[in-house]
Design a protein around this nucleic acid. Structure first.
Length: 967
RNA sequence: GCCGACGUAGCCGAGUUGGCCAAAGGCGGCAGACUCAAGAUCUGUUCCCUAGCGGUUCGCCGGUUCGAAUCCGGCCGUCGGCACCA
């Protein structure tokens, strides 16, 4: 059967909003406020993003149907340059961008309206709200929607920063940032939000080593990542074919590559280029090596890269494969000697010095690795370069972890490399022989096209997340929070400890709130999204125009949030009347604290810590967050990010139309736990769609089948099962385990209904009661289908507004539930035996346990309940009974088995076995079993003297496990 | 490199306070039913052996224990974060 899902969804969505089910106003119920971490407005989202959002809506709906007044607000994060960049591409008519927009459903008219970055923001705000969240049936309070670029939101952020300042958590100090000459500081990260190239680059700290060249009265400056190797320096490398520059740095003159000079200017004061010097000119110069204080010669080397470090390199052939290799070349190439006028004596005087001992390496680790990797045998220069890089990394890694400084290393002899590195660096910095320099590990290019380098920014503002008191108080609070998964709860304290100061403002042309203490700065993207859930309690009034941004002065927030000042004074300062002020204040304190903040796993070490710390820093105890849920991703095939070229990039509205919103919601909820990644697979979504359709058919068949008949055992069984399921659902949802709930509702309950039908159940009263429960439980995850079925079943009102029934323990019966298990088990056993026997069978005889075994079981249960069950005790007890004693050996054996079993499983699990009259149950189910198996069935008690038992099977029957004979 | 997490049958994934766990559920496979037909639905089955017994499994190696998918150590592999992306 094919349904028009889209139409059905629209119908019920309209019914919900007509009744304002999504709009949250304070009342007398307990409140529940949850959000998902708002998404960055970077363009269209894909089906993976809906996973977390759907969890939030389902949890909100569940809370609503269990007595809570739920506030579920949404918003978007647009701070940064994403919208500017997108706008620029649209403006430039970039074909790829236009195609991307159109493919995702942007019409020509809409495209024509994207005439500014803010227009882009507004457009996507509409897309997210209408095409994603409303489309998916979310019961979010749309009236409260906010965006980080709204003027009222800015007022809130300004206030937040005033609070941070007042708490002494804003500090200023120099900072080294990736910097574009056009755009200012940029974020270097793999998502390349700000970049067109180089997202994987890292900032590396080099030690600049200064080599005094007496005859030239200047310093040759080399950059190294291995300051611990200075005792192994034997010469110095320059590229003869390059032109270097002389720069003046204070009173000193340095020689570096022009590229390095440009970078140094960004990081150091008073650096100016004053001249040039050719590489080949320098060959043969003598310079004094730092730490070693020995003269070493400048030799030519081809591997030197002017873009890396300073374009000059100090040579430590013992531990650097490139140095080893280049020194070999100098020694073996007579032409070089002639070309640069180097004397044989000078060349001979340069010998590697062994400085670090590493297990598994020889005297000279660089030599060892070159030989081990057989680099000398490789012809292709590109391949050689690659191998040399690998060799360098390997030697470095082994040296760093396992190496120890040899006696040649002066005061540092004996130290592990790990320790020596920092100590030697510090010693040279202290003596003025070295300075620090930061560089990126690969070429980074800004979205504007300019090359990005590291720049020192002197007056950078930070939020001081390293503050010990704040960290301690935040950690303390976390202990009382509900944080899922457990692993993150256990670890969040460690994350908070690790968190240190974080730059919170940036220069350049960015969208965002201006820093209130100096408008040249814009508050950056993470810092303006830490306390924002609070703002949803206020945004309603700004969105409705009842308060104006210019009225939202610090006094306003002080009053409504922190309850500082008086309504009269704040009214005078802001022009907002006192009634409204007090209404807003009441709202804030009704809704806050936040109960759940739900977000993807990438938030664990960035957003969640700052969210927690800003709350702790600014708000009182009564407003601290109560819960965090982390969800994992939906990935493309083979764990790639969902690729735009494959199915996963199918626009969300398209997927919703194709599968139906509820199928996708069920897919998200059930396909895996929240805490594992899932591969997007359309076939699996389709399967969930079929599952839902089957359930709808089952319900409709049930409605059609119901008649007024007397209720029987199977009716009691079904109601017992469903009430048990209600209890299971509540237990699962205490941990927000949507997957467990989905398993119960869509699988276990479906199977129960099916079994009920198979066993001939059709009592109208039972069916209506079961449906009432079942459809209710479907509401959180598949609300549209639930609403449709609720309507078809003729129940009143909207199920979205209904309350989940509470499990009624009076109709729950362990014995009734167990009885049906036994029937199924008997059928299963007969099938198994029939299959193994591989012969034609026409008749099955079932023998239930003899009464004496039931008696023994009852004794064991009583003993277990009294806490005194043991094998000898039970055996003795049995032997005290004269009847049992007659059959002493068998009784003792059975008593032993029973005791062990009851001790394992517990009395509660076995009680129903003892309570059930197996013979009566199986005899009454006899007809059913016969029709299921398609053979004749006879049921006897093992005690029945007139039973048919040609193979003497009856004696193996035990309670819960009837014996079976087939013929 | 550092911090954290994960690794389960053909596949996706439950299970991890150690004990009815050969291990839920789904997909896929096989057999059957129904059917004009359906990526339909229903029933049974799906590690090996077997009248329900039993045997070998939960990345690899070793250890603790009466007992380990669950605890400990090492190794291998995957994922996230690593500071101006949320």
């Amino acid at each position: 059967m094919s349904r028009d899902y889209t139409e059905m969804e629209k119908k019920w969505q309209k019914a919900w909003t007509d009744q304002k089910l999504n709009e949250a106003e304070p009342d007398s119920r307990p409140k529940f406020m949850l959000i998902f971490a708002y998404p960055g407005l970077t363009g269209y989202l894909h089906v993976g993003h809906l996973r977390g959002y759907t969890y939030a809506d389902a949890i909100g709906r569940y809370k609503r149907m269990t007595g809570h007044n739920v506030l579920f607000p949404v918003g978007t994060h647009a701070t940064g340059n994403g919208a500017i960049s997108l706008y620029n591409k649209i403006h430039a008519q970039d074909p790829k961008t236009i195609d991307y927009l159109k493919r995702n459903g942007c019409t020509d008219a809409e495209l024509a309206g994207l005439t500014s970055p803010m227009a882009v923001v507004k457009f996507f705000n509409g897309v997210y709200v209408n095409e994603y969240w409303k489309r998916f049936g979310f019961l979010a309070d749309w009236r409260r929607f906010t965006c980080t670029l709204f003027p009222d939101y800015a007022k809130f952020i300004e206030w937040q920063f005033c609070q941070l300042k007042a708490a002494n958590l804003l500090i200023q100090k120099p900072y080294y940032a990736p910097f574009c000459p056009n755009c200012g500081p940029v974020a270097v990260d793999p998502s390349e939000t700000d970049l067109s190239k180089g997202g994987n680059a890292e900032t590396q700290e080099y030690t600049l080593l200064k080599f005094w060249c007496e005859e030239q009265q200047l310093y040759l400056v080399a950059a190294t990542l291995r300051p611990e190797t200075v005792f192994g320096q034997v010469c110095f490398w320059a590229r003869p074919d390059l032109e270097y520059v002389k720069i003046k740095k204070g009173k000193e003159i340095w020689v570096v590559s022009p590229q390095a000079a440009e970078k140094l200017e960004l990081q150091m004061d008073g650096v100016t280029t004053i001249g040039k010097v050719k590489g080949d000119e320098m060959i043969g110069w003598q310079c004094r090596a730092p730490m070693l204080h020995k003269l070493i010669p400048v030799f030519p080397a081809a591997f030197v890269d002017p873009d890396v470090g300073t374009g000059l390199v100090t040579s430590v052939p013992s531990d650097a494969p490139d140095d080893w290799d280049s020194l070999e070349k100098v020694k073996q190439d007579p032409a070089l000697r002639v070309k640069y006028g180097l004397s044989q004596k000078l060349i001979d005087s340069v010998k590697p010095v062994s400085i670090i001992s590493i297990e598994g390496y020889g005297e000279f680790p660089a030599q060892t690795i070159i030989e081990k990797m057989k680099i000398a045998d490789v012809e292709d220069p590109a391949k050689v370069r690659e191998l040399m890089e690998e060799a360098k990394k390997q030697v470095y890694k082994d040296g760093y972890h396992m190496g120890r400084m040899k006696d040649t290393c002066g005061a540092f002899a004996g130290l592990r490399v790990e320790e020596a590195k920092d100590k030697m660096k510090q010693a040279m910095l202290d003596s003025g022989e070295a300075e620090l320099f930061r560089d990126l590990t690969e070429e980074v290019v800004c979205r504007c096209g300019r090359r990005v380098h590291i720049k020192r920014i002197d007056d950078q503002w930070f939020i001081d997340y390293g503050n010990a008191d704040l960290t301690a108080r935040t950690k303390e609070h976390c202990k009382g929070m509900q944080i899922f998964p457990q692993e993150y709860y256990d670890n969040v304290g460690g994350v908070l400890d690790w968190f240190r100061e974080r730059a919170c403002v940036r220069l350049g042309n960015w969208l965002g709130t201006k820093f209130p203490f100096d408008p040249k700065w814009t508050i950056e993207a993470i810092s303006d999204s830490t306390l924002y859930p609070l703002y949803y309690t206020i945004s309603l009034y700004a969105n409705e125009g009842r308060i104006k941004p210019e009225q939202m002065k610090p006094e306003f927030f002080d009053y409504v949030v922190l309850e500082k000042g008086t309504a009269a004074a704040v009214a005078a300062a802001t022009g907002i009347d006192t009634t409204l002020l007090d209404k807003i204040k009441a709202d804030v304190h009704y809704w806050y604290p936040l109960d759940i903040n739900l977000g993807g796993k990438e938030h664990m070490t960035v957003h969640f810590p700052v969210f927690l710390m800003n709350h702790r820093a600014i708000l009182p105890d009564s407003m601290q967050p109560r819960g965090i849920i982390v969800n994992w991703y939906v990935t493309g095939k083979n764990k790639d990010k969902i690729s735009k070229s494959k199915g996963g990039a199918q626009p969300i509205p398209g997927a919703a139309a194709k599968y139906g919103v509820d199928s996708m919601r069920l897919y998200y909820a059930h396909v895996a736990s929240m805490f594992v990644d899932v591969e997007w697979d359309e076939d699996i979504v389709f399967m969930y769609r079929q599952k839902l359709e089957r359930i709808m058919t089952v319900v409709e068949d049930l409605i059609a089948a119901e008649t007024d008949v007397p209720a029987g055992d199977i009716d009691a069984w079904l109601l017992s099962r469903f009430n048990t399921h209600l209890a299971e659902i509540r237990t699962a949802m205490e941990k927000y385990d949507l997957r467990q709930m989905a398993t119960v509702v869509y699988y276990d309950m479906t199977n129960d209904i099916r079994w009920y039908g198979r066993r001939g159940g059709k009592d109208k009263k039972t069916i209506r009661e079961a449906l009432r429960i079942w459809i209710n439980t479907m509401m959180p995850i598949t609300p549209h289908v639930a609403e449709e079925l609720w309507h078809e079943a003729g129940f009143e009102g909207l199920v979205a507004a209904a309350q989940l029934p509470v499990a009624d323990s009076r109709v729950q019966s362990a014995a009734a539930e167990y009885g049906e298990d036994l029937v199924q088990e008997v059928i299963g056993d007969v099938n198994t035996i029939r299959k193994i026997a591989k012969t034609e069978t026409k008749k099955a005889v079932i023998y239930t346990s003899p009464a004496w075994k039931v008696d023994v079981l009852k004794m064991a249960l009583a003993d277990q309940t009294a806490g005194k069950l043991s094998i000898p005790a039970l055996t003795k007890e049995c032997m005290a009974n004269l009847e049992l004693r007659k059959n002493g050996k068998a009784t003792a054996e059975f008593a032993k088995k029973t005791a062990v079993d009851v001790m394992h499983a517990g009395a509660a699990a076995r009680q129903p076995v003892a309570d059930l009259n197996e013979t009566a149950l199986l005899q009454s189910a006899c007809g059913f079993i016969a029709s299921e198996l398609g053979m004749e069935i006879a049921v006897y008690s093992a005690d029945d003297t007139a039973k048919y038992d040609p193979q003497n099977k009856a004696h193996v029957a035990v309670p819960g496990r009837p014996a079976i004979y087939l013929e």
